[in-house]
């Protein structure tokens, strides 16, 4: 049976949701599997993480090195190559770290690589059956991945719901001595926190959010007028920030802010998973989009297929009349 490992991302001694999600993903590969956690770091933070992991993992491999205090993927990759047995499957969260680590790791392990996996259909012969999305979530694809020489699989955050299970009582195995001294050609310097904007969108109850469908900078005003009429605040998805039409502090998504409003009007937003990852608290989502196949309609409560540049001004006028 193929051995499954899960790379554990942690920060300041605390785990994020991914550690439990990777167990759920491993069970989809093989229901009988008991994945082994691999965790890198140093000091008391690492020990705290190993303690927390004992609840969900039967075995925990820890690699403790001063050089790994910050998860520099250049170094973590070297460490993992040193300890991972040939032919094993490694699960990694598909986030800014997994994107950095995994493609090169798969090459160094001579293993297959599949990124951003959101569903797993089990093993059939030498193939692992997987589902991922293309074209910004507009279509899904069944994939097959030859695992005869192992595989690195990046798992979409939030796609696998943690499964309830009895405490695993994990035993910690110290693998640090198997990792030689680590010298990096890429050196972590510091983390620069995002700058606060004029408005903290994470604290707003009603958000009018605009995406690529707003088309031009001048049209941002249309959304602002609507927000003013509603008593709401305007936020946006990534393309609007890339085009420099709105400040980064207004961006909702995994690389922007996490919001938890009561009502979220998604206007001209396709609904990539990176954007949806920034919407928490189960708000009432209204989607307005020209494209009836936009993935946003699958997660929205109410949808309107229409040109937002025409709809929003009319909606604004109607609200102004209603409120009067």
């Amino acid at each position: 049976m193929v051995r499954i490992f899960a790379y554990i991302v942690h920060k300041g001694g605390a785990l994020d949701d991914a550690s439990a999600e990777l167990v759920a993903a491993a069970k989809k590969i093989d229901a009988a599997s008991s994945p082994t956690a691999i965790v890198t770091g140093s000091g008391v933070d690492l020990d705290a993480v190993c303690n927390s992991l004992a609840a969900s993992y039967g075995e925990i491999w820890k690699i403790s090195k001063e050089a790994l205090a910050y998860p520099n993927s250049d170094l973590v990759r070297k460490a993992l190559v040193s300890v991972l047995p040939a032919g094993s499957i490694l699960l990694v969260p598909h986030d800014h770290f997994g994107i950095d680590l995994s493609p090169g790791l798969a090459v160094e392990m001579n293993a297959s690589f599949v990124s951003d996996v959101m569903e797993i259909g089990g093993i059939e012969g030498r193939y692992l059956k997987l589902v991922r999305q293309e074209f910004g979530g507009q279509v899904s694809a069944h994939m097959q991945c030859d695992i005869s020489e192992g595989a690195v699989i990046n798992i979409r955050p939030g796609a696998f719901k943690p499964v309830e299970s009895a405490p695993a009582g994990g035993k910690v195995v110290d693998k640090s001595s198997e990792v030689a001294d680590l010298a990096a050609r890429r050196r972590y310097l510091e983390t620069i926190a995002s700058e606060a904007g004029d408005v903290d969108i994470s604290k707003e109850d009603v958000l009018v959010s605009i995406g690529r469908g707003i088309q031009e900078q001048e049209n941002v005003e249309i959304a602002q007028n609507l927000a003013d009429a509603m008593g709401a605040v305007v936020c946006c998805s990534r393309p609007v920030v890339d085009a420099k039409w709105m400040d980064k502090s207004r961006q909702v998504g995994s690389s922007g802010q996490t919001v938890k409003p009561k009502v979220y009007l998604a206007c001209g937003i396709s609904g990539s998973f990176q954007h949806l990852a920034g919407i928490k608290g189960n708000p009432f989502i209204v989607a307005i989009n020209k494209n009836p196949k936009a993935p946003i309609f699958q997660v929205a409560d109410v949808g309107i297929v229409d040109d937002l540049l025409e709809l929003l001004p009319e909606l604004t006028n109607k609200i102004r009349e209603t409120v009067k």
Binding site: S112, F113, V114, Q133, E134, G137, V139, S140, A141, H142, M143, Q144, C145, D146, E149, I285, A287, P295, F297, Q298, V299, A300, D301, V302, G303
Partner: peptide, 16 residues
Amino acid sequence: KVKRVDYFVPALGKGA
């Protein structure tokens, strides 16, 4: 070693 078998329309949520 990695192949796309086919495409299909995703059914993620309950739908709007």
